[in-house]
């Protein structure tokens, strides 16, 4: 694939976001990662917003990294909207959350999550996650057709 490898990171915790951006910066030089600090911004980015009518970035990312616990519009709602909206529903969504709870895992997969990752506890863990996500989802994985 050519062009920048774009990832939309949906993460409300500033520190987690910074750690992830650092980790992806180290492992994905030249890649482009866009941060949505809450669920509404994420939906606006992906689905457009008539009221704003100025989508932050044109075109869709290759991958969405989604935290589940978000203020306002929850990660589950974002996931559900993505997976039920024509045009974006094939977009791979990787859940990245601190919860390992059975009920969260069940609901996330039921709603169509493509993968479920638990946030690591160390920066080394973040680097490993960033490397693995990049390798699997942006390199090995063959992207779905755009409709």
């Amino acid at each position: 694939m050519d062009g920048p490898r774009r990832i939309l990171l949906v993460e409300d915790n500033r520190m987690d976001a910074e750690l992830l951006l650092e980790a992806f910066g180290e492992t994905l030089p030249g890649g482009e990662i866009h941060l949505a600090p809450d669920g509404q911004v994420a939906l606006d980015c992906l689905l457009g917003n008539d009221a704003l009518d100025d989508r932050v970035e044109p075109g869709l990312p290759e991958l969405v990294l989604l935290d589940l616990k978000l203020p306002g519009v929850s990660g589950f709602e974002v996931l559900n909207r993505i997976k039920t909206t024509p045009g974006v529903k094939r977009l791979p969504v990787v859940v990245l959350t601190s919860s390992r709870e059975r009920s969260d895992r069940a609901l996330a997969y039921d709603l169509g999550a493509n993968s479920f990752l638990v946030k690591p506890l160390t920066y080394a863990g973040f680097l490993e996650t960033a490397r693995a996500v990049q390798h699997y989802w942006l390199t090995l994985n063959v992207a779905p057709p755009e409709n």
Partner: peptide, 20 residues
């Protein structure tokens, strides 16, 4: 214990970045 993990991640994570 769930909520304690987020700040801990930050402490450990940034400490690690500094030491690297």
């Amino acid at each position: 214990s769930h909520d304690l993990r987020a700040p801990l991640r930050a402490i450990a994570g940034f400490a690690d970045i500094i030491s690297r």
